[in-house]
Write a protein that binds this DNA or RNA. Structure first.
Length: 255
DNA sequence: AAGGTGGACAACCGCCTAAAG
DNA sequence: TCTTTAGGCGGTTGTCCACCT
């Protein structure tokens, strides 16, 4: 499955890495640390390009890389994140500890995209029961004419969230009765928002509330407020480390 | 058993951006 | 302010392997 090693026109090694090359690179980085990739090959005694060293380290040699099959939860998370972020693999990988963008990209291109092409895939997802809303948000939108995607997250105990300029509606009752609460939007002027001033980023509206919240029977106390510090400009993002693993509450949101 | 085909994935390529000079 | 360089990212390619005919 590996490319055979060979040399390019500059006499540098290309293709599959050998065990010796791996050992040299790991030894060097363990001793000197990451960075300065262009000088790494020379200093580490490798006949490779710096970019190649960087890729090898990031994708395969660095510690805590998780190998092997993707779990059902990981698969579902990738699908959700891809729906939000598109092909922004590095962002997606940032939310799957131990997984690399390259690995996720490959998995998506070879497996998940095909699964999703199957129109019944969603029905057959292991967590399908969770995808079926207990409480559906209101159908009407007051925002853009293009119908935004309905996003569900089961992450709770989040303290920050960011989302595009769409009305955000969150169920306000604990028992799933058909109620939604329109959260007032407000603009924040923090420094991360300043990035939007160059017009290359979509205009973000941000939400905040600080009263105790009930989501689907689970009491939530805290603050949800806007933050776009990681360019997640396609939808709401709930950071992993803001979630409480024991909570399995669903939040439905209309974008 | 041999050849063909497609899946899986490691690695490379080219573009973009930010930092440095 | 302009140019160069390094690093990061997504897209694509090349190769191996398993399965099918």
């Amino acid at each position: 499955m590996k490319k055979k090693p060979f040399c390019d026109e500059d006499g540098l090694n290309k293709g599959a890495w050998t065990a010796l090359e791996d050992k040299l690179l790991v030894s060097y980085i363990n001793a000197k640390g990451e960075g300065k990739w262009t000088s790494v090959p020379k200093k580490a005694g490798l006949n490779r390009r710096g970019k190649s060293c960087r890729l090898r380290w990031l994708n395969y040699l660095r510690p805590n890389i998780k190998r092997g099959n993707f779990s059902g939860e990981e698969e579902e998370l990738i699908i959700r994140l891809h729906k939000l972020l598109g092909n922004r693999w590095s962002l997606i990988a940032g939310r799957l500890p131990g997984r690399t963008d390259n690995e996720i990209k490959n998995y998506w291109n070879t497996t998940l995209s095909k699964k999703l092409q199957n129109q019944n895939f969603a029905i057959n997802m292991p967590s399908n029961k969770l995808l079926e809303p207990k409480l559906k948000p209101q159908e009407n939108h007051t925002s853009s004419s293009s119908m935004p995607a309905l996003i569900r997250t089961k992450a709770l105990r989040c303290t920050k969230a960011s989302y595009p300029c769409f009305p955000l509606q969150i169920p306000s009752s604990a028992d799933g009765v058909d109620q939604t609460r329109q959260i007032s939007l407000q603009n924040f002027g923090d420094e991360s928002m300043d990035k939007g001033k160059d017009n290359s980023l979509p205009n973000f509206d941000l939400v905040s509330f600080d009263d105790a919240m009930w989501f689907d029977g689970m009491e939530f106390e805290g603050l949800i407020r806007g933050d776009d510090d990681d360019d997640d400009d396609d939808g709401i993002m709930i950071e992993d480390n803001w979630t409480c693993g024991s909570l399995e509450t669903d939040i439905w949101m209309n974008f």
